[in-house]
Amino acid sequence: MASPGRRAAGGNSLLRAARSASLWFLLLTAALLLADGYLIFMVAPTDAVLGDVQRIFYIHVPISIISFLGFFVCAVAGIAYLIRRSERWDRLAHASAEVGVIFVTLALVTGVIWARPVWGVWWTWEPRLTTTLILWLIYVAYLMIRHYAPTPQQGRSWSAVVGIIGFIDVPIVYYSVQWWRSIHPVQVIGPEAADDALEPIISRILIFSLIAILMLACYLVMERMMLRAAEDNITELRRQQQDASPDY
């Protein structure tokens, strides 16, 4: 039998290396985010029609894009887990789903805060908003299924299949909501049209912001994966100790 004590020690030095790498990554991310804040508040021009609130756009759009990316990663990692049966893939799927839920929540909240001054209502059943809400519901269910599964093994497989179904569902939801809305149109005034013709300065700041927030998301996913790894280690060690203990 392999000594879990030694394995944990080896894991510790590995973890320490990983932690120092993640510290550097965190510092770089923080620097980028500070620069991003400077660009958003100081450099970006104030929108003539919408006023300062338009600056939400620079975080709202990247956060939404990254949450979709997170669920894509989650679905792919889920498929990889089902094929390979490797804990690593499951950790990645779990971490990216959890970070994805945080991001999609923020996308909804910043969207609502955007909608009030710009559209005059807190909420509108606009296709993108509605799809995002459905996405949020699906991935909250994904996290619930992990929590409610009687064994970790079942939790891993179930959440993988829920992730796959959820991801297939998203484009269908989007098109159905769009068709539905085209029958009962909502009044949408404002920056919808701005999407295709952004000024170069605006699109450049947007891309910078996307990169900075993407790095933040990567940091959070890595941190979450390391936490999961530590928790898995504890469970494993407990189990081995129980098996080896003469009392049991």
Partner: peptide, 26 residues
């Protein structure tokens, strides 16, 4: 342009508080 700074600050504050809380918690 319309004066709507509180909304802007609310959005950024929420985003930052959530990020920090999540990272700190982890």
């Amino acid at each position: 342009p319309p004066q709507n700074l509180p909304f802007l600050f609310a959005a950024f504050a929420v985003a930052w508080i959530v990020f920090f809380a999540y990272a700190g918690y982890m």
